[in-house]
Design a binder for these strands. Sequence first.
DNA 1: GACATGACCCGCG
DNA 2: CCGCGGGCCATGT
Length: 109
Amino acid sequence: MERKPTDFESRVYEVVSRIPMGKISTYGEIAKQLGIRSARAVGQALRRNPYAPTVPCHRVVRTDGSIGGFYGEIAGDLIAKKCQMLAAEGISFEGNRVDFSQFLHDWNS
DNA sequence: GACATGACCCGCG
DNA sequence: CCGCGGGCCATGT
């Protein structure tokens, strides 16, 4: 059944879509922008993500810099595709982690 | 309204 | 480094 996104999801998509190319953010930071302390709720919204390529969900990573779930964890090459997609935007990795000191988006800017 | 699920985070051992 | 437990919030049944 098709159902419209909730207000909460809309807020999440809005914040995530604000991440500029070549930058990334974390679930926890986004949660803070929304005024909550649960990165889980953010993950829930992104998991549903009906605006897939529109909302750059791949620019959102875990607090420790790892890519996280996306397609069900390091199931195979799918995660590697994500790395390439990010690399295409100018983001580089250390294994499956990103360098926050360079790519973490500054919400105050 | 209660219970279960989930692309999370943090602390402890 | 790995595993375990608790906290957190929204969604679906």
